[in-house]
Amino acid sequence: MTTVSTGPAGGTSAAQTPSTAQSDAPDVDFATVGDVVRDLYTDGVSARKGAFSAEWADRMREDIEEAFEEARHRPGGAVGRGPHRYYVEIHPEQLRDFVDLVDHPWVRAVCEAVLGRDYSIVELGFDIPFAGAVNQPWHRDFPMPDVTRERRRLNSLAFNLTGVDTTEDMGPFEIAPGTQWDLDDGFEHAMFPPREDYPRYRELGVRKFPQRGDVSVRSALTIHRGTANHSQLSRPVLVLGVDAPGAGNDGHHDMAVTHEYWRTLPERVRAHLHCPVVDELTPITQKHTIEGLVMGDAEPDSPDAGMGGGMAGPAPEEPEGDDS
């Protein structure tokens, strides 16, 4: 059985000593949480600046880089999300500060306010656009659920944390506020709007420039895209997916924890982590096949960009088994 590394090279395994250090951020007041809920139901996105330190974000990036190295050398380890852009799903033990993230007062408060006290953590992964990545097609991350279409209720959230200080030339994330309510008539796979709608999304689109330590939260239904990376650097972004009871997105992910790691987790983290508890972790095979295929169809106005540097200089090899 192939196993997954659970700590950075030369470091302490996260399975043995998960982080329990709390953020210096104060508890979140009701007014702040109310503002975030309003943002999510109007714009479809909100954020907390400086939730963590830059050093915390640097550790996160180290863990992302190690996980990508492991994933890109096995079939299905990293799925293409467009030219020179990849997505990898990981287990909680592969992120040393997983507990810091999911137990952060702002993250907890937002999850409870939008999704209810019985929310579930269903996804942990990361996106990496490398040098030469082009504009993605505008999209949402999954089809609109009935509860949103019929009752205008959001039943899932995606938290994003950048591993770098984002600049204009690094292919920043772009989002079209208010489009979480757009009906999917004519959308390919119920996720990709027709190209004739692109001018509207470009007009609405807002590019985001998060810095290390910032946390954003959005409805994954809000139409968005990654933009062209003209720099020689990668822009790794951690993704944490959270569901309301019954949302069903856990069926699209294979997150697990070991018995050893489970015993170290605070009870209030265990209460929201409903994934399998196993003797030994196995690497996750990515399931984003539709997104991988369609994301390869870059927007016509994307510039022709050659492949440049990766996370630490030279461009990575194409992940084995990635046919997108």
Score class of each variant (00 low, 15 high):
residue 107 V to D: 06
residue 92 P to R: 10
residue 29 D to A: 11
residue 68 F to R: 06
residue 131 A to R: 00
residue 43 D to N: 14
residue 123 E to I: 05
residue 73 H to S: 02
residue 145 P to S: 09
residue 20 T to D: 04
residue 100 D to W: 01
residue 94 Q to Y: 02
residue 20 T to I: 06
residue 114 V to S: 11
residue 66 E to G: 05
residue 38 R to K: 12
residue 87 Y to R: 12
residue 139 H to S: 10
residue 81 R to Q: 15
residue 34 G to F: 03
residue 88 V to Y: 01
residue 4 V to K: 00
residue 30 F to N: 02
residue 5 S to L: 05
residue 107 V to K: 07
residue 120 S to M: 04
residue 23 S to A: 15
residue 125 G to L: 02
residue 10 G to F: 14
residue 22 Q to V: 14
residue 15 A to M: 10
residue 88 V to K: 07
residue 50 G to H: 02
residue 142 F to A: 12
residue 9 A to Q: 13
residue 17 T to A: 15
residue 22 Q to P: 01
residue 78 A to P: 00
residue 126 F to G: 09
residue 9 A to H: 09
residue 100 D to P: 13
residue 23 S to C: 12
residue 88 V to N: 04
residue 81 R to F: 14
residue 130 F to V: 11
residue 70 E to L: 07
residue 69 E to W: 00
residue 117 R to K: 15
residue 148 T to F: 13
residue 64 I to R: 06
residue 54 A to T: 13
residue 20 T to N: 09
residue 71 A to Y: 14
residue 132 G to A: 12
residue 4 V to Y: 07
residue 127 D to T: 10
residue 97 D to A: 09
residue 126 F to Q: 10
residue 68 F to V: 00
residue 9 A to F: 08
residue 98 F to H: 09
residue 71 A to I: 11
residue 75 P to M: 07
residue 104 H to E: 02
residue 88 V to H: 01
residue 60 M to K: 03
residue 106 W to S: 03
residue 24 D to R: 08
residue 140 R to H: 03
residue 94 Q to K: 00
residue 4 V to G: 07
residue 114 V to H: 09
residue 110 V to G: 10
residue 86 Y to C: 06
residue 21 A to L: 12
residue 112 E to V: 15
residue 90 I to L: 01
residue 43 D to G: 11
residue 77 G to P: 02
residue 18 P to Y: 02
residue 15 A to T: 13
residue 5 S to D: 06
residue 9 A to K: 05
residue 119 Y to D: 05
residue 25 A to W: 05
